[in-house]
Amino acid sequence: MSGLEVRNLHVRVAGKKVLRGVDLKVEYGEVHAIMGPNGSGKSSLAYTIMGRETFEVEDGDILLDGESLLGLSTEERAMKGLFMALQDPPQIPGVRLSTIMIAAINKRLGSTDLTRVRDPSIVKRMYKLAEELGLTRDILQRELNVGFSGGEKKRSELLQAFIVDPKIVILDEPDSGLDIDGVRKVSEMIRGLTDQGKGVLLITHYARMFKYLDPDRVSVLIDGKIALSGGPEVAKLVEDKGYAYIRSQYMARRG
Protein backbone atom coordinates (compact mmCIF):
# COMPACT_ATOMS: atom_id res chain seq x y z
CA MET A 1 0.00 0.00 0.00
CA SER A 2 1.19 3.54 -0.64
CA GLY A 3 0.71 5.95 2.24
CA LEU A 4 0.57 5.44 5.97
CA GLU A 5 -0.81 2.31 7.54
CA VAL A 6 -1.30 1.55 11.22
CA ARG A 7 -1.89 -2.10 12.11
CA ASN A 8 -3.26 -3.39 15.42
CA LEU A 9 -1.35 -0.75 17.40
CA HIS A 10 -1.13 -1.24 21.15
CA VAL A 11 0.64 1.54 23.08
CA ARG A 12 1.44 2.27 26.68
CA VAL A 13 2.68 5.55 28.16
CA ALA A 14 3.96 5.86 31.73
CA GLY A 15 2.49 2.43 32.48
CA LYS A 16 -0.99 3.34 31.19
CA LYS A 17 -2.47 1.66 28.14
CA VAL A 18 -3.58 4.38 25.70
CA LEU A 19 -4.10 2.53 22.41
CA ARG A 20 -5.71 -0.91 22.27
CA GLY A 21 -5.38 -2.24 18.74
CA VAL A 22 -5.78 0.64 16.31
CA ASP A 23 -5.99 0.01 12.56
CA LEU A 24 -6.12 2.83 10.03
CA LYS A 25 -4.84 3.96 6.65
CA VAL A 26 -4.00 7.35 5.18
CA GLU A 27 -3.56 7.31 1.44
CA TYR A 28 -1.87 10.05 -0.54
CA GLY A 29 -4.11 12.90 -1.58
CA GLU A 30 -6.72 12.18 1.08
CA VAL A 31 -7.74 13.52 4.48
CA HIS A 32 -8.38 10.89 7.12
CA ALA A 33 -9.97 12.58 10.12
CA ILE A 34 -9.67 11.05 13.57
CA MET A 35 -12.31 12.27 15.96
CA GLY A 36 -12.89 11.39 19.57
CA PRO A 37 -13.60 12.76 23.02
CA ASN A 38 -10.90 14.00 25.41
CA GLY A 39 -8.58 11.24 26.54
CA SER A 40 -9.61 8.82 23.79
CA GLY A 41 -6.01 8.46 22.55
CA LYS A 42 -5.99 10.79 19.52
CA SER A 43 -2.81 12.68 20.40
CA SER A 44 -1.20 9.46 21.66
CA LEU A 45 -1.78 7.97 18.23
CA ALA A 46 -0.11 10.97 16.57
CA TYR A 47 2.89 10.93 18.91
CA THR A 48 3.33 7.17 18.51
CA ILE A 49 3.29 7.40 14.72
CA MET A 50 5.93 10.15 14.99
CA GLY A 51 8.06 8.00 17.32
CA ARG A 52 8.01 9.98 20.55
CA GLU A 53 10.10 7.90 22.93
CA THR A 54 7.74 8.11 25.90
CA PHE A 55 5.11 6.15 23.89
CA GLU A 56 5.94 2.45 24.06
CA VAL A 57 4.61 0.25 21.28
CA GLU A 58 3.59 -3.10 22.79
CA ASP A 59 2.21 -4.66 19.64
CA GLY A 60 1.32 -3.85 16.04
CA ASP A 61 3.10 -1.91 13.34
CA ILE A 62 3.31 1.47 11.62
CA LEU A 63 4.19 1.42 7.93
CA LEU A 64 4.98 4.09 5.37
CA ASP A 65 4.74 2.86 1.79
CA GLY A 66 4.78 -0.67 3.15
CA GLU A 67 7.98 -0.18 5.17
CA SER A 68 7.86 -0.48 8.95
CA LEU A 69 8.80 2.65 10.87
CA LEU A 70 9.15 0.87 14.21
CA GLY A 71 12.74 1.04 15.32
CA LEU A 72 13.30 4.37 13.58
CA SER A 73 13.89 7.53 15.60
CA THR A 74 11.62 10.56 15.35
CA GLU A 75 14.07 12.37 13.07
CA GLU A 76 14.46 9.30 10.86
CA ARG A 77 10.66 9.09 10.47
CA ALA A 78 10.60 12.79 9.60
CA MET A 79 13.25 12.21 6.96
CA LYS A 80 11.18 9.33 5.56
CA GLY A 81 8.35 11.77 4.98
CA LEU A 82 6.29 12.19 8.15
CA PHE A 83 5.49 15.61 9.55
CA MET A 84 3.57 16.41 12.70
CA ALA A 85 1.98 19.77 13.47
CA LEU A 86 1.60 19.93 17.22
CA GLN A 87 -1.51 21.10 19.02
CA ASP A 88 0.52 23.38 21.28
CA PRO A 89 4.08 23.63 19.97
CA PRO A 90 6.70 24.63 22.58
CA GLN A 91 8.34 28.05 22.74
CA ILE A 92 12.02 27.81 21.85
CA PRO A 93 13.91 31.04 22.61
CA GLY A 94 17.03 31.59 20.55
CA VAL A 95 15.84 29.81 17.39
CA ARG A 96 13.98 31.75 14.71
CA LEU A 97 11.11 30.24 12.77
CA SER A 98 13.03 30.82 9.53
CA THR A 99 16.10 29.10 11.01
CA ILE A 100 14.26 25.88 11.76
CA MET A 101 12.68 25.80 8.32
CA ILE A 102 15.99 26.46 6.56
CA ALA A 103 17.65 23.76 8.70
CA ALA A 104 14.90 21.25 7.88
CA ILE A 105 15.20 21.98 4.16
CA ASN A 106 19.01 21.86 4.18
CA LYS A 107 18.93 18.53 6.00
CA ARG A 108 16.69 17.12 3.29
CA LEU A 109 19.02 18.51 0.62
CA GLY A 110 21.92 16.71 2.27
CA SER A 111 23.75 19.84 3.38
CA THR A 112 26.01 19.67 6.43
CA ASP A 113 25.68 23.42 7.04
CA LEU A 114 22.10 23.66 8.25
CA THR A 115 21.97 27.42 8.75
CA ARG A 116 23.12 28.87 5.43
CA VAL A 117 20.45 29.46 2.80
CA ARG A 118 21.46 27.38 -0.22
CA ASP A 119 18.64 28.46 -2.48
CA PRO A 120 17.24 32.05 -2.14
CA SER A 121 14.00 30.94 -3.80
CA ILE A 122 13.19 29.03 -0.61
CA VAL A 123 13.09 32.29 1.34
CA LYS A 124 10.77 33.81 -1.27
CA ARG A 125 8.55 30.76 -0.98
CA MET A 126 8.47 31.11 2.81
CA TYR A 127 7.29 34.71 2.51
CA LYS A 128 4.67 33.81 -0.10
CA LEU A 129 3.28 30.92 1.92
CA ALA A 130 3.30 33.00 5.12
CA GLU A 131 1.19 35.62 3.38
CA GLU A 132 -1.17 33.00 1.99
CA LEU A 133 -1.63 31.66 5.51
CA GLY A 134 -2.40 35.15 6.82
CA LEU A 135 0.90 35.54 8.65
CA THR A 136 2.99 38.70 8.59
CA ARG A 137 6.48 38.39 7.14
CA ASP A 138 8.17 39.38 10.38
CA ILE A 139 7.02 36.17 12.03
CA LEU A 140 9.80 34.36 10.15
CA GLN A 141 12.39 36.34 12.10
CA ARG A 142 10.72 35.82 15.45
CA GLU A 143 11.82 33.14 17.86
CA LEU A 144 10.01 29.86 17.41
CA ASN A 145 6.53 30.10 18.97
CA VAL A 146 7.72 32.75 21.46
CA GLY A 147 4.86 35.20 21.96
CA PHE A 148 2.90 33.65 19.06
CA SER A 149 -0.88 33.86 19.40
CA GLY A 150 -2.89 30.65 19.18
CA GLY A 151 -3.71 31.35 15.55
CA GLU A 152 -0.10 32.19 14.68
CA LYS A 153 1.04 28.87 16.15
CA LYS A 154 -1.44 26.90 14.04
CA ARG A 155 -0.54 28.76 10.89
CA SER A 156 3.18 28.50 11.59
CA GLU A 157 2.87 24.74 11.94
CA LEU A 158 1.09 24.54 8.59
CA LEU A 159 3.69 26.82 7.03
CA GLN A 160 6.39 24.39 8.09
CA ALA A 161 4.36 21.49 6.67
CA PHE A 162 4.27 23.17 3.27
CA ILE A 163 7.95 24.14 3.31
CA VAL A 164 9.30 20.78 4.45
CA ASP A 165 7.20 18.99 1.82
CA PRO A 166 6.52 15.69 3.59
CA LYS A 167 4.50 12.73 2.31
CA ILE A 168 2.18 12.47 5.30
CA VAL A 169 1.10 15.38 7.49
CA ILE A 170 -0.29 14.66 10.96
CA LEU A 171 -2.28 17.62 12.24
CA ASP A 172 -3.14 17.53 15.93
CA GLU A 173 -6.19 19.74 16.45
CA PRO A 174 -5.24 22.46 13.95
CA ASP A 175 -8.56 24.22 14.59
CA SER A 176 -8.36 24.62 18.36
CA GLY A 177 -8.16 28.24 19.47
CA LEU A 178 -9.04 29.61 16.02
CA ASP A 179 -11.89 31.95 15.20
CA ILE A 180 -14.26 31.06 12.36
CA ASP A 181 -12.17 32.86 9.74
CA GLY A 182 -9.09 31.04 11.00
CA VAL A 183 -10.85 27.68 10.76
CA ARG A 184 -11.86 28.45 7.18
CA LYS A 185 -8.34 29.51 6.21
CA VAL A 186 -6.68 26.50 7.85
CA SER A 187 -9.22 24.18 6.20
CA GLU A 188 -8.38 25.64 2.80
CA MET A 189 -4.68 25.15 3.44
CA ILE A 190 -5.22 21.53 4.49
CA ARG A 191 -6.97 20.91 1.21
CA GLY A 192 -3.97 22.55 -0.41
CA LEU A 193 -1.77 19.87 1.16
CA THR A 194 -3.85 17.03 -0.30
CA ASP A 195 -3.97 18.82 -3.66
CA GLN A 196 -0.18 18.49 -3.63
CA GLY A 197 -0.63 14.74 -3.15
CA LYS A 198 0.15 14.58 0.55
CA GLY A 199 -1.81 12.37 2.90
CA VAL A 200 -3.30 14.13 5.92
CA LEU A 201 -4.14 12.56 9.25
CA LEU A 202 -6.36 15.18 10.83
CA ILE A 203 -7.05 14.93 14.54
CA THR A 204 -9.96 17.00 15.81
CA HIS A 205 -12.58 17.14 18.55
CA TYR A 206 -15.22 18.88 16.53
CA ALA A 207 -16.84 18.62 13.14
CA ARG A 208 -16.72 22.38 12.59
CA MET A 209 -13.78 22.11 10.18
CA PHE A 210 -15.89 19.91 7.91
CA LYS A 211 -18.03 22.86 6.89
CA TYR A 212 -15.04 23.92 4.84
CA LEU A 213 -13.21 20.64 4.30
CA ASP A 214 -14.70 17.33 3.24
CA PRO A 215 -12.71 14.52 4.80
CA ASP A 216 -12.28 11.42 2.67
CA ARG A 217 -12.45 9.14 5.69
CA VAL A 218 -13.51 9.69 9.29
CA SER A 219 -12.72 7.40 12.20
CA VAL A 220 -13.87 7.81 15.78
CA LEU A 221 -11.44 6.80 18.49
CA ILE A 222 -12.92 5.82 21.83
CA ASP A 223 -10.95 4.37 24.75
CA GLY A 224 -7.95 3.70 22.52
CA LYS A 225 -9.84 1.81 19.79
CA ILE A 226 -11.48 2.79 16.51
CA ALA A 227 -15.17 2.61 17.39
CA LEU A 228 -16.54 3.70 14.05
CA SER A 229 -15.06 4.34 10.63
CA GLY A 230 -16.50 5.56 7.35
CA GLY A 231 -16.91 8.61 5.17
CA PRO A 232 -18.06 12.18 5.96
CA GLU A 233 -21.36 10.78 7.26
CA VAL A 234 -19.51 9.65 10.40
CA ALA A 235 -18.58 13.25 11.20
CA LYS A 236 -22.24 14.22 10.70
CA LEU A 237 -23.27 11.47 13.11
CA VAL A 238 -20.79 12.74 15.72
CA GLU A 239 -22.14 16.25 15.36
CA ASP A 240 -25.77 15.15 15.58
CA LYS A 241 -25.58 12.46 18.27
CA GLY A 242 -22.35 13.08 20.19
CA TYR A 243 -19.62 10.72 21.35
CA ALA A 244 -21.75 9.12 24.10
CA TYR A 245 -24.11 7.74 21.46
CA ILE A 246 -21.27 6.34 19.37
CA ARG A 247 -19.72 4.78 22.45
CA SER A 248 -23.01 3.10 23.39
CA GLN A 249 -23.50 1.79 19.86
CA TYR A 250 -19.95 0.47 19.84
CA MET A 251 -20.38 -1.23 23.20
CA ALA A 252 -23.64 -2.78 21.99
CA ARG A 253 -21.93 -4.12 18.86
CA ARG A 254 -19.19 -5.66 20.97
CA GLY A 255 -21.82 -7.24 23.19
Binding site: T74, E75, L82, P90, A103, A104, L114
Partner: peptide, 16 residues
Protein backbone atom coordinates in the same frame (compact mmCIF):
# COMPACT_ATOMS: atom_id res chain seq x y z
CA UNK B 1 10.78 15.93 20.24
CA UNK B 2 9.42 18.97 18.42
CA UNK B 3 12.70 19.74 16.68
CA UNK B 4 13.45 16.08 15.99
CA UNK B 5 10.03 15.83 14.32
CA UNK B 6 11.45 18.34 11.79
CA UNK B 7 14.17 15.83 10.94
CA UNK B 8 17.01 17.11 13.11
CA UNK B 9 19.25 15.02 15.34
CA UNK B 10 20.08 16.01 18.93
CA UNK B 11 23.55 17.15 17.88
CA UNK B 12 22.11 19.30 15.09
CA UNK B 13 19.54 20.74 17.50
CA UNK B 14 22.27 21.71 19.97
CA UNK B 15 24.21 23.43 17.18
CA UNK B 16 21.08 25.29 16.10
Amino acid sequence: FYLRSRGLSREEIEKL
